[in-house]
């Protein structure tokens, strides 16, 4: 019987914890784009690998950014 291969989850380090100078700003769309899917949804923490504090900051920044139309609420890709 073929056993499903055991996947070792790779421990990701939160990039904001690693780089203290990296600021999460709602105006920085280039950075925030990395944390939304192509449909405009915020990526989950298990995908981004952020720690809970920074994931929350990212989420708040994305939401603020949406309010000023820098990021989409929804984008109709497909």
């Amino acid at each position: 019987m073929a056993k499903p291969p055991v996947r070792k989850p790779k421990k990701k380090i939160c990039i904001f914890c690693k780089d203290k100078d990296l600021e999460i700003d709602y105006k920085d769309t280039v950075l925030l784009r990395k944390y939304i899917s192509d449909r405009g949804k915020i990526r989950a923490r298990r995908v981004t690998g952020n720690c809970s504090q920074h994931q929350r900051d990212v989420a708040v920044a994305v939401k603020n950014s949406r309010e000023v139309a820098l990021l989409p609420y929804t984008s109709t890709a497909r």
């Binding site: 709602y26 900051d57 920044a61 000023v68």
Partner: peptide, 19 residues
Amino acid sequence: LRIKVMRRDPGTTVRRGAA
């Protein structure tokens, strides 16, 4: 068309102030 006011005090960090 739109306005957004954010607090930018040095005391409150960006992440706390952003909420």
